[in-house]
Amino acid sequence: MASLESTRLKTESRTRWLLISPAMLVVIIGAIAPLLVIVIFSFLTPGPTGGVNFTPSFDAWTRVLFDRDLFDDTLTLSGTNLEILLRSLTLSLATTFLCLLVGFPTAYFIATRNPLNREVWLLLVTVPFWTNLLIRTFAIQDLIRNEGIINTLLLKAGLISAPIQILFTNFAICLGLVYVYLPLMILPVYASLERLDRNLLEAASDLYARPFKVLWEVIVPLSKPGIIAGSILVFIPSIGTYVTPILLGGGRNLMIGNYIELQFGQGRDWPFGSAISLTLMGIVMVALLIYIRHGDTRGHEHG
């Protein structure tokens, strides 16, 4: 009996491994192997025309935070690198926050329409995805440049006397990122709002909660899974974004994605590029951990 049972379990587990092996293979080839390559590269020295020399070194990692003085080899905190890291973090956090600020009401609006209209609104939210990202970004460029529609209208209306510089600012990058990633916030938040039991809102209102309190005490805590998912979906791609800072930041306001590209391209410093890539990954992971942990405890104590 027992041996029969254990043979059955053995076959079962063998079948299970066989079944998931294709997926495992994809994960190994597609994710783990490239990551390993990058980790190894980050501990080597740059080759003369790109690529790497197989001489182990911590130099790339040191340079993530420090500048090495050309003459006496002393290390000073690297202003540029820190600025780029900080700007990336600030811009992507701001983008996430703005997406939430705009996306939550939008998702709430859609979730409270009747089912037929909901589908139309959801379709409309995804419409921007149908157009290429580059074209959409160029369109924004055209809207906000000094001779663009916005400045022209404001000038004509007499609200300003000289065009406002919007293009090539951090604000322009943020605007572009919010525009691009907003649907990624709206959709998961909508999904959790749509499942919200309307009775709970009435119960809160019945128990003396004013509309704002209903929102803060019931709707927001219960849609937290959607808010967390949406924030992650917006934060990760926006911190590593590449196209938007180039087109809307004008190359002056680099973000970490552009900096990485620079190392692998013109800079010909693959180890340094690898080290910054891994730094970016580290930042994202730490941010996520803090965010999810914080969101969780908040939910428990607030209840």
Partner: peptide, 26 residues
């Protein structure tokens, strides 16, 4: 005027005590 809803409509993100205290907190 307070209501006991047919499906109870208890707040799932709160404990029993927090549910009971909700109205007073508001």
């Amino acid at each position: 005027i307070n209501t006991v809803f047919q499906n109870y409509a208890l707040f799932p993100h709160m404990t029993v005590a927090e549910n009971i205290g909700f109205g007073l907190r508001m």
